[in-house]
Computed example of a mutant assay.
Amino acid sequence: MNNILITGAASGIGAATARLFHSRGWKVGLLDINHSALAELAAELGGVWHAELDVADPGAVREALADFAALHGGQLRLLFNCAGLLRLGHFEEISLEEHARILQINVLGLLQMTHAAFPYLKATSGAQVINMGSASGLYGTPHMASYSASKFAVRGLTEALELEWQRHGIRVGDLMPPFVRTPMVDSQHFEPPALRRLGVKLRAEDIAAAVWLQAGQSQVHRPIHWLFKLMYWSGQVSPAWVNRLMMRRISRE
């Protein structure tokens, strides 16, 4: 029986992914710091396993993984690292504490989850890690500097582990979408020029569908939406200044 453990599962992309995988017969585990929203989703899905979790707490991370894996014979088929924070605005106007928290959740939290999941992934045939990356991990994006930096870190970790964990039969990849219509984006009080020009073309359900595709056919990076796919693949064959020029144009205030 396939199982998936999702961080940041209480809303947005995490919740949409939980609904999709549950509807297709997977055993789903839900993790999020928002206990009330998490409990509501768990009840909606028929009382699936869930636990309140701050991914920045290493002890709680280890305990949550052990508890979920114990229900499945010590195995974990798929870890979806979806928990994340976003703060849009001018770099100097965002407090240092907020910048640090973004990196703590988006990078350290993801690293801790992946590290603690290793023994359960290793014990599972066809095991896989899917990390929530971003189009902002391709070229640094103005007005979301620390978020963009965090997604560069996710990209680097993904690439390294995809190579390193081949010997264990564990596949590692990430998803790289541009802006997605989620509560995290909708709650922002600052609209970057890039968001205004590009718009928000994707829904949480679109990303959940990409997680499903990734679970069946793993890629190191899975760019999402035709415009970003064009930017991504052109960046593989063009000099770096091409992406810089494009970013300057769409981010001009």
Rank of each mutant, 00 (worst) to 15 (best):
P119C: 09
E44C: 07
I105T: 10
E159M: 07
H143L: 11
Q104G: 06
L76A: 00
R171W: 00
D206K: 01
S23L: 08
M247C: 10
C82P: 07
Q104D: 14
G73F: 14
F152C: 12
A9C: 10
M246H: 10
A100C: 10
R19H: 13
A135D: 05
I170Y: 00
G74R: 00
I105M: 06
M1Y: 15
A15K: 01
G74H: 05
L227Y: 13
L227R: 15
A43M: 06
R222G: 03
M1L: 10
A240S: 12
V55N: 01
E253G: 11
N34C: 13
E44Y: 01
L41P: 09
G126F: 06
R197S: 12
L53M: 08
L5Q: 00
R24Q: 15
M184G: 02
V55T: 09
I130P: 03
H143D: 11
V211A: 12
R197H: 08
I170T: 01
P223D: 13
G12N: 13
A9F: 09
A160N: 01
S148H: 05
H168A: 15
A16C: 09
M113A: 02
F21H: 02
F118H: 14
P183M: 07
R62V: 07
V237I: 15
E97D: 14
N81W: 01
I105H: 04
R167P: 00
V200C: 12
L198Y: 04
L213N: 13
F91K: 03
S146Q: 09
L38I: 06
R155L: 15
L103E: 03
W241Q: 06
N81K: 04
V211P: 03
A204V: 12
I94G: 04
E63Q: 15
S218G: 02
G137T: 03
G140E: 07
M231E: 11
V200D: 02
A116S: 13
T182G: 06
P178S: 08
D174A: 11
G173P: 05
N106M: 08
A116K: 00
Y120A: 13
V185L: 13
W212C: 09
G84N: 03
L41Q: 07
A70R: 08
Y232C: 03
S136L: 10
R181N: 09
V211T: 06
L31H: 00
N243C: 04
V242R: 12
F152W: 11
G25N: 10
G46S: 09
I13K: 02
P193A: 10
S125Q: 14
V129N: 02
L96D: 12
F68L: 07
R155G: 08
M246Y: 12
G173S: 11
G169L: 12
Q188D: 08
R248K: 14
E40M: 09
A39P: 06
A100D: 10
R203L: 14
R24H: 15
V28E: 04
S146V: 14
F68C: 01
H99Y: 08
A210H: 10
F228Y: 14
M113S: 00
L202H: 05
S150N: 03
G109N: 04
R87P: 07
Q236E: 10
P178M: 06
